[in-house]
Nucleic acid binder design. Structure first.
Lengths: 307, 307
DNA sequence: GACCCTCTATCAGAAAAATTAATATCGGAA
DNA sequence: TTCCGATATTAATTTTTCTGATAGAGGGTC
């Protein structure tokens, strides 16, 4: 009577907030999902979801049942992972990274990963956090690394790294490379910022507003690589996570100075679907990514002490 | 791909140790069970059970997977119980009791239960522990109360009550009713015992052998009521759990004296299928049964102090 | 309020999966 | 070897699931 398909359908509808979206995610039709939910509700003898013409809202029963269902799916996934993938580093790993990570730490991580797990079919998607979050929830990525945030339905979150934010400008424009800098004491900034849909935008604006940083002009640029290129060849500056800039610590192209008074830190978290368990290969990649990132930060701190 | 039917089939085969028995329990055919297991093994890419011509033996993978599966089924059952049965005292309750319990504590328990849960369809099966255990494992009983023992696959065990064993004889044959008695100091016993398939047989033999109790003659009688009747009208004695004898504390029919030096205690446990969760009604009955039994024991202890 | 847009429910036919009964096969015991 | 009790296999059948089309319900907009 009860089936796992019904449960998976319910979890998908709950997380996506919509039958239609759930159908897409599960590779099914809206009609099929609708019937699964109906049968589930009938056999439980209780409503789980209220259809409100504009999507669905779970009932109290639905909320509780969802929690159990996710836990059950996860446990099943874990049990099966133990048997079939049993420590074999194979299969495919699909991860999502923001440009922050693809710029500098991806390459060395990949080097190490491929050396250890040569047979894994590796796929990296570069996108901004909103897109990555959706892809992870849909199950199209094993995990993604995104800015720390306040949770999302169906995702589990683990802190991967905490990194310092840097003021970046072209060479010889900021003075003492790699030494702390207090923005409040500078001339008004001509600053490049990402669009409002980007989590970083709010972080930066909040920092500037609450610490009296003067801004002369603001330029909205939603391309990370473009931002760096533009900054390198102009008098504009940008605020970027330090982890992006590890290959430019020599000062050949950029002046890089950590924000100070107060320092600004950004969290990056690993998100994965709660209903699933990371494969050994994916878990390995995640730990290598963390290690590599931590090493680059350590290297930078050493350089900063020297400077 | 994976389905709950497959998982339930696997759990049944594991617990019954046989495809054929599992098929019966699940109300399916042996062929269907066989296919479910095959699909499960194929999709996991691992053997779970070794067919050895004389039943099945789980592999190491099978053992681990079984544990997870039971936990998952139980959790699902719990989740659904919370929703559909939500504290409604209804449906049916099927329990199994040994004659030990049906003789004296069943009636008052039923009285109390029916007063509180008048709409429940109540079914009591009287049998010895082996039969009850099988019925519980097959899911045909919600729970049963049997002598404490060393676990069985697929069953969870909870101690219900610990009771003192009594020497029972017809009136005026044992001397001081309700006072402790040391068997070693008695003349050789003419004792009625149950057959070797009964758990009590071993308990009694062990006690007698290890505490120097002399036995003149032994009579094997596998009927509890018959035993009592025979004892009441002869010079034979029996060793019985105190809880059976609460209605005979007045000494009108029997002399009853607790074994002493050392006292002999018997545990009675509640067994239920691990994969399921007791319905609220069943749980209520279990707790009433325990309460009632404890009360009878308390009453007896008061009488014993007086004696 | 009429209209439109988006979402879910329902239905019947098509496809897929589970189930069965019959039978083959295997392994151990006498 | 032969038999017995068990599981595996197979093909036909039954049941369930899935789909595509369509109907209906609920908000937003003009």
């Amino acid at each position: 009577m009860r089936s796992l398909k019904q449960i998976r359908s319910f979890v998908a509808v709950f997380e996506e907030g919509s039958f239609t979206a759930a159908a897409q995610r599960e590779g099914a039709t809206q009609s099929g999902i609708s019937q699964h939910i109906r049968h589930l509700e009938e056999s439980l003898g209780a409503e789980l979801l209220v259809r409100d013409g504009r999507g669905v809202i779970p009932t109290a029963h639905g909320e509780r049942y969802y929690g159990e269902c996710v836990a059950i799916l996860r446990r099943l996934d874990l049990a099966e992972a133990e048997i079939s993938r049993a420590s074999a580093l194979g299969g495919e790993v699909r991860i999502g990274l923001m440009p922050t990570f693809t710029r500098a730490v991806l390459a060395p991580t990949l080097d190490r990963f491929i050396a250890v797990a040569p047979t894994v079919d590796m796929r990296v998607t570069e996108a901004y956090s909103g897109v990555l979050t959706d892809l992870v929830r849909k199950g199209e990525l094993d995990f993604a690394v995104v800015p720390g945030f306040q949770g999302a339905v169906g995702l589990s979150t683990t802190l991967l790294i905490r990194d310092r934010e840097m003021l970046v400008a072209s060479k010889n424009r900021l003075g003492q490379h790699l030494t702390p800098i207090c923005l409040k004491e500078m001339d008004p900034l001509k600053i490049v910022v990402p669009g409002p849909q980007n989590t970083r935008r709010r972080t930066i604006e909040t920092y500037c507003a609450s610490h009296g940083v003067a801004i002369e002009r603001r330029l909205q640029l939603d391309a990370m690589m473009g931002t760096l290129d533009f900054v390198a060849s102009s008098e504009w500056v940008a605020i970027l996570p330090g982890v992006m800039m590890v290959n430019d610590l020599d000062g050949a192209r950029f002046d890089i100075r950590p924000l100070d008074q107060p320092a600004l830190y950004s969290d990056f978290v690993l998100i994965e679907p709660t209903r699933r368990v990371l494969s050994p290969a994916a878990a390995l990649f995640a730990s290598l990514l963390r290690e590599t990132t931590e090493q680059t930060i350590t290297v930078r701190q050493a350089r900063m002490r020297d400077a």
